[in-house]
Design a protein around this nucleic acid. Structure first.
Length: 790
RNA sequence: GGUCCAUUAGUCUAUCGGCUAGAACACCUCGUUUACACCGAGGAAGGAGAGGUUCGACUCCUCUAUGGACCACCA
């Protein structure tokens, strides 16, 4: 790429400013119009907008802009998700601090200050790509209103018996020191060893294969499969746990895989889910070897205080020395890790709050089916997720920066004391509980809950969060359920699912009518990710090609389809913009004396062309209605290049240069209106350049403040025109050009044209224009022939 | 292991069962014509494999192969 300057930059700046100042996308609360409302998932504040955001948010914006031009009052707020663990990690990283090393208050203050500074920069990227939100309807999932809504949600669910607190094993991240929900856990393949370890039994030694020797101190039993003949003889016997000073029973259970390892497995409390099932089923003792910090507990004897990996190393060393380690097989296997930090998940017994929903699986499937999915196959993701749910929703995090639980406890009897609704938003650490004594035991010792609500608990309220900014009660009612939820497919199990859950539990209604799911941007077929190092920054793309080109690129792929990033697609977008500028320049050069009048009678060719345009409107409107913006784009694109620039403009060129009276006015009228229509049809996709051309040329006639609030072109049912005439015209022109090209003559070479009797009669109304575009001195009748005039 | 999506020119993508398969980029040939060389005209180039349904299949079904994603399991 030779040239790096982007002429669109100033244009983009100018209109961005204009749109905000003029409130072009402002939501009118007193509206009488039909409302189209959009619940955009607030992006997590974590660095900068990535290309996937640009892709997905652009796609929603196409639809929104179309709906706005169609005459809907659009409610399109924008939020940022900026609380909880992700924000904490970002702050820790950017500021080089650790939350655990500083007072809670100070860390929270630091987070708030950081956000105040970062959020405007973060949001700027969305403004830069031309997202047509009402930026006055901005919310943050940590602002007072969001705290209030989240805490209200907690209280409401509590009252509906959907909230419970349990001291039980839960998934736990030793790095972040917090409980984690099923949705926050990911797979990661790691290198490990199968260690064959000897357990003494009094008879032959038992060889047990394990990847986690550090859990030996928590071993409570060993299992074999009931049909495994090798081990039948051990039934009812005991085995001595190596290095440890205790014995465990040898039991049989069907859940053992005979083919895996040595066919014998050790069961350690909380080793994994099966271990927990066994603990319950056989009423085994509970032994906890790992602390919440990921350190070995006193039960581990000499390994106490060591980190998990350190302990593993030491134990292996000691086993080797004692001759109890017979073999080590290197393996690769998948483990569960915390998605925020990549640390392996442990099961730790701790007190956590849960939303009860496992009992609702069937309802959840039903509710999901009530949404209009675009595309439909994405519903499978939702169903799949619901069917695979194994835990209730863990919503408490043992962290600092987030929405506090509106809860205190009686220290003596443990009674839960809820905040009053009128108190919200509340911080139990700072604020007083609504009662001075425990209502149950009358103790005066009341302590606050120090955990915070997981960030999804708040962001799943997004349809409510922004609506609170609307004051008009009548309008507010119309904003729920929302019309559309646009989002990418990887967060179906997060936001979409959680939001449906919340909405149904609180209001017994789905949060939205339609959902539109975007695909991924891929790089040579693979998902882009930082770890793979194949990330493209949208900021750089915009710098080079401009926002419209980026959006044009995002419009190339259908909803739900992954799209492979290739720079050439941006080049195509940029070219289109240039072409639009040039075509407009040409047209308005020839419209200087045009006052907007209608011709007395449209010339036949102009009428024919406008009829084609009319058909285009019909198709494009239908495509946008179906959320098929990529088909719409393709149609307008093709029409603009082929029908309009390459043919129609060439056909009428001379008529507007040299024509007189009605024949000229007819062409001018057609040019004015077709360009305006094309711009409008392009406007949802490339808002900047269409606005630029509109403002510079059309606004004096059209009056509307911005093309983006102009009326969408209407399809008009017209009297029948033979539709094949236009195509026939193009066909004949193409054949003439082919002849010229074959003869290596310039396109304006003068010719004598002969066309068939049939064509001649079909095109009889257009012969003058045909002569003009072909530069034919005369048109004869006969078999097709192009004769060059020297 | 379960589920879903994909497989069309060199590349990326389009196509309600009628296809002579349509664009774009790259490639080749030609053309500076008073909007545009970031252009125009023309050209070469394509349906993963095997079955089936059908008058007719790129399109629908089954299987295979390859790629991708989501979910689950993982001693």
């Amino acid at each position: 790429m030779a040239e790096e300057t982007n002429p669109m930059k100033d244009i983009e700046e100018k209109w961005k400013k204009y749109w905000e100042e003029e409130g072009i996308y402002k939501f009118n609360q007193k509206t009488r119009k039909k409302i189209y409302s959009v619940d955009t998932p607030p992006p997590t504040v974590s660095g900068r907008m990535h290309i996937g955001h640009a892709f997905s948010y652009s796609q929603s914006d196409f639809i929104v802009r179309f709906k706005r031009m169609m005459g809907n009052e659009v409610f399109y707020p924008f939020g940022t998700d900026d609380n909880g663990l992700p924000t904490e990690r970002l702050v820790e990283k950017s500021k080089g601090v650790h939350a655990k090393d500083m007072p809670r208050k100070e860390f929270i203050k630091l987070c708030m200050e950081f956000l105040k500074e970062e959020i405007p920069k973060f949001i700027q990227d969305w403004k830069n790509i031309g997202i047509s939100c009402d930026w006055n309807m901005k919310y943050s999932t940590i602002d007072d209103n969001s705290r209030k809504v989240a805490q209200w949600s907690f209280l409401d669910l509590y009252k509906k018996n959907r909230m419970y607190r349990k001291d039980a094993p839960a998934m736990w991240c030793p790095e972040c020191r917090t409980g984690v929900a099923q949705v926050e856990v990911q797979d990661k393949e790691i290198d490990s060893f199968f260690n064959d370890i000897l357990f003494k039994t009094g008879k032959e030694d038992l060889k047990i294969a394990t990847t986690r020797p550090e859990l030996l101190p928590a071993c409570v039993a060993v299992f074999y499969h009931p049909e495994d003949k090798r081990y039948k003889k051990y039934q009812g016997k005991k085995a001595k746990v190596p290095l440890m000073d205790f014995e465990v029973p040898i039991l049989e259970d069907k859940r053992v895989d005979m083919k895996k390892g040595t066919g014998i497995v050790m069961c350690c409390t909380f080793g994994d889910q099966t271990d927990m099932e066994w603990q319950k089923a056989y009423n085994l003792p509970i032994k906890i070897a790992i602390s919440e910090n990921g350190e070995m507990l006193p039960i581990a004897g000499k390994y106490k205080g060591m980190k998990i990996k350190e302990a593993r190393k030491e134990i292996i060393k000691d086993l080797k020395e004692a001759g109890l380690l017979t073999n080590q097989t290197p393996i690769k296997h998948f483990v569960n890790v915390h998605e925020r930090c990549g640390t392996e998940i442990e099961f730790v017994k701790s007190k956590q709050w849960f939303v009860k929903y496992l009992d609702l699986k069937e309802d959840l499937l039903k509710w999901g089916a009530e949404l209009n999915w675009h595309p439909l196959f994405m519903k499978n993701r939702y169903d799949n997720w619901v069917k695979g749910l194994q835990w209730d929703w863990l919503i408490s995090n043992q962290r600092y920066f987030g929405v506090p639980f509106p809860v205190w406890y009686c220290e003596k009897c443990g009674e839960v004391i809820l905040a009053k609704e009128s108190q919200l938003p509340v911080d139990p650490i700072k604020d007083k509980p609504p009662v001075s004594k425990c209502p149950k035991c009358k103790s005066e010792k009341i302590i606050p809950e120090t955990d915070i609500l997981n960030t999804w608990f708040t962001s799943s309220m997004s349809p409510k969060l922004a609506v609170e900014n609307v004051k008009d009660e009548e309008t507010k009612k119309k904003l729920f359920p929302m019309s559309l939820r646009p989002q990418a497919h990887e967060i179906i199990s997060f936001w979409l699912f959680n939001t449906v859950v919340k909405s149904r539990l609180h209001f017994k209604k789905n949060p939205w009518k339609d959902v539109a799911i975007s695909g991924f941007v891929t790089m040579k077929g693979e998902k882009m990710s930082k770890s793979k190092g194949n990330v493209i920054s949208p900021q750089e793309v915009m710098e080079k090609f401009g926002a419209d080109a980026l959006r044009y690129w995002a419009a190339s792929s259908k909803l739900g389809e992954d799209f492979d990033y290739q720079e050439k697609d941006l080049v195509t977008g940029k070219k289109l913009i240039t072409k639009l500028i040039n075509a407009s320049r040409f047209i308005f050069m020839n419209l200087k004396d045009y006052k907007g009048e209608k011709p007395k009678k449209l010339e036949a060719t102009d009428e024919l062309f406008l009829n084609e345009l009319n058909k285009l409107i019909e198709g494009v409107t239908e495509d946008f209605e179906n959320y098929e913006y990529s088909l719409a784009k393709q149609k307008v694109d093709q029409f603009f290049w082929r029908d309009f620039c390459d043919n129609y403009l060439e056909i009428v060129k001379k008529r507007v240069y040299n024509g007189k009276g009605n024949e000229k006015i007819s062409a001018q009228y057609a040019l004015y209106n077709s360009l305006l229509t094309i711009l409008k049809l392009f406007a949802p996709i490339i808002p900047f350049i269409t606005e630029e051309i509109y403002q510079n040329n059309f606004k004096t006639f059209e009056k509307t403040k911005s093309i983006h609030i102009c009326e969408w072109p209407k399809y008009q049912k017209k009297k029948k025109i033979d539709e094949n005439e236009w195509n026939l015209m193009l066909e004949v022109i193409s054949k003439i050009r082919q002849e010229k090209s074959n003869a290596k003559k310039p396109m304006n070479a003068q010719i004598i044209l002969t066309i068939t009797k049939e064509d001649n009669s079909s095109l009889k109304l257009f012969l003058e224009d045909l002569k003009s575009v072909a530069n034919a001195s005369e048109i004869k009748e006969g078999s097709f022939n192009v004769k060059f005039v020297e």
